[in-house]
Design a protein around this nucleic acid. Structure first.
Length: 583
RNA sequence: GGCCCCGUAGCUCAGUGGAUAGAGCAGCUGCCUUCUAAGCAGCUGGUCGUAGGUUCGAUUCCUACCGGGGUCGCCA
């Protein structure tokens, strides 16, 4: 194209002006070049220019067999043989795997508090971070997956205190309750008792604010936090015991959700970090002192002033985040990038954090990134833990799996499958529905969680994609041994439009994956996978495979199917979703 | 109020400067004695929040306004 341009018009093509795009399905062609940007440069009308360029390209490029011009759009038709080659490629190796880049990336994608169980919001966070990790690995990065556990502070003391007061020694073992659920139950108990005390105090004539501050049970919790900080053995022992219950619960949920971490950071260990770094910054003149506290001034950058160390010398949240970031880069030499998968309610926090680290002069400060995902809303409105409107993660998974089972049993395609194998399948399908539902939308946007739609197994869903994969596997099983096909015979016989559509979508996939990795956006992978399997289903319905009489075409279509299955399985792997061989 | 994000079909979402704006769901029609109907084919459905601007061309970029959300502690 560049050559054609130079030879015919003796003008250089402006860099980055040449845009190749996939031809829209309603026109004939595979690749489209828009010539509008060049008409002024060359002084030709759009149609004439497009036609002349089309002729030149045809002459120079054997891959292009035909072209047509509609308005200023030059549509090029690529030879069938080239598309057949794409099938060979995708069959022979993983086209969604790129060579190692040597780059090491840390992804933080969970930061639960240890006083209550995981909920729907955590699931979006976890699935998103897990998928981003897989996508980054697929494009060749080395990924370190980490979580931060907020295991200390007033919240956990509240649960501990309520358990001491009202628990009668209840344990997960004897009650049969999951550990995180049990601890969460006492957090609620605390809140109830606290509110009752407030009411009593207000009835006795105190204002609401006074009552909220002076309720005895709150003072007791605060006292417990002081004892924790002083290292009181009794408090520490209870803390370890109850946190242990929570971890058992979390780990059960993580295992079921199919996610894991390479490293856990506990707030009880990191909350002391950062102080020294802030003091060092003070010395360097990056920060300043006012009223005995240490501040950073970000007003020049359009942000505010922010306290980093209180007057009494204790840290704030920001302080430990500064320290933790520094520690991570020390712990992982060669770490090139750190991605925080955290909700967009913390946009401002991360802006400030990154700015501070830049001011402190860390060379890696520009490689920090906040993957800011939107909140999950319910049809009834926002999820609020205080109002009990949160959707529990375990309950939700139970529901989608139950729905998968209900439909699976109803369709009764699995009657010869063992009960254990069925359990595994329904688990796989239910989780696919849930994960795909949460991953198919742009992570940056807030999304509405419709419980009915999330357990849907038809249409634009995870199970639909799984179904297509299972269908292909069944086809391949019935086909028996693999036979070869001759590309030139396919070339001369021509491709069916359904075949061509599938192959083009497959061909685009590697660049979509790359784009998803750049933008940290699994929804791009999710949507491309859907497009691909949708096109495959149209092909499957319209074009015979096993029943095709011509041996070459039959083998070719089987390989096309094999390639689609392979790409689909890998794409779903990148989303953290498993695919079955039958369903 | 300052700053940040979002307004696309009845609903949920794709579409980050190009052609007549797409999909799923919902509603309506067809297609299973033939490779898995969790499927396929089709119909219905849109002033891309509003008004300006930039451009050969704007859902996409800029400005203002309207509507929704978030955030602005020596809390975590």
């Amino acid at each position: 194209m560049e050559r054609a341009f130079r030879q015919r018009y003796s003008k250089e093509l402006p860099p980055r002006q040449l845009v190749l795009q996939a031809t829209r399905p309603e026109f004939e062609g595979d690749i489209t070049i828009n010539v509008f940007p060049f008409i002024k440069l060359v002084g030709r009308g759009p149609e004439a220019l497009a036609t002349e360029l089309g002729e030149d390209i045809m002459r120079e490029e054997p891959l292009v067999v035909r072209f047509n011009v509609i308005k200023g759009f030059l549509n090029l038709v690529i030879a069938d043989g080239h598309w057949a080659g794409v099938v060979k490629q995708a069959c022979a190796h993983d086209i969604l795997k790129f060579p190692p880049t040597g780059r090491k990336v840390m992804v933080e994608y969970a930061s639960p508090n240890t006083n209550k169980p995981l909920h729907l919001g955590h699931l979006r966070n976890i699935f998103l971070g897990w998928s981003v990790s897989r996508i980054l690995e697929a494009v060749g990065h080395e990924v370190v997956k980490v979580q931060v556990i907020n295991d200390r502070g007033i919240h956990i003391c509240k649960s501990m205190l309520a358990w001491l007061k009202f628990g009668h020694g209840e344990t997960p073992q004897q009650s049969g309750m999951k550990g995180d659920k049990l601890v969460g139950k006492y957090y609620v108990e605390f809140d109830k008792a606290y509110k009752a005390e407030i009411d009593t105090l207000v009835a006795a004539g105190k204002t609401k604010e006074e009552a909220e501050k002076s309720a005895p049970i709150l003072l007791e919790a605060q006292e417990m936090l002081r004892r924790w900080e002083a290292g009181d053995p009794e408090v520490r022992a209870l803390w370890e015991r109850m946190n242990g219950w929570v971890y058992e619960g979390f780990n059960a949920t993580y295992a079921r959700a199919g996610v894991g971490f390479d490293r856990n950071y506990y707030e009880s260990e990191t909350y002391v970090l950062g102080k020294a770094d802030v003091l060092a910054g003070l010395e360097k003149g990056v920060f300043y002192e006012k009223d005995g506290a240490i501040w950073v001034d970000n007003t020049a950058e359009g942000l505010d002033e922010k306290v980093l160390l209180r007057r009494d010398g204790t840290s704030v949240y920001m302080t430990q985040d500064i320290g933790t970031a520094i520690k991570r880069f020390e712990e992982y030499p060669g770490l090139g990038r750190l991605i925080y998968t955290v909700g967009n309610e913390q946009d401002y926090h991360f802006k400030v954090l990154f700015l501070i680290l830049r001011k402190l002069g860390f060379p890696w400060a520009d490689e920090l990134f906040h993957l800011s995902y939107g909140m999950v809303d319910l049809p009834s409105g926002k999820m609020k833990s205080r109002e009990g409107t949160v959707v529990d993660a375990d309950d939700l998974i139970d529901e989608v799996v139950a729905e998968a089972r209900r439909l699976g049993e109803q369709l009764s395609k699995l009657d010869d499958v063992s009960p254990r194998e069925k359990d595994r399948l329904f688990e796989m399908i239910g989780l696919a529905a849930l994960k795909y539902f949460l991953l198919k939308v742009d992570p940056r946007k807030r999304m509405l969680f419709d419980p009915a739609a999330s357990i849907d197994l038809q249409g634009h869903t995870g199970p639909f994609i799984q179904y297509t994969h299972a269908r292909i596997k069944s086809l391949l099983r019935k086909a028996g041994d693999r036979s070869a096909w001759a590309p030139d015979r396919i070339q001369s016989a021509g491709l069916r439009p359904e075949e061509r559509t599938v192959i083009k979508l497959m061909h685009q996939f590697p660049s979509v994956l790359h784009e998803a990795a750049t933008r940290l956006d699994p929804s791009a992978v999710a949507n491309q996978t859907f497009e691909l399997v949708k096109a495959y289903n149209a092909f499957y319905q319209a074009v015979p495979v096993l029943k095709e009489e011509d041996a070459d075409r039959r083998a070719f279509r089987l390989d096309l199917s094999r390639a689609v299955a392979r790409v689909t399985a890998k794409a779903m792997y990148c989303l953290g979703i498993e695919v079955p061989d039958r369903m």
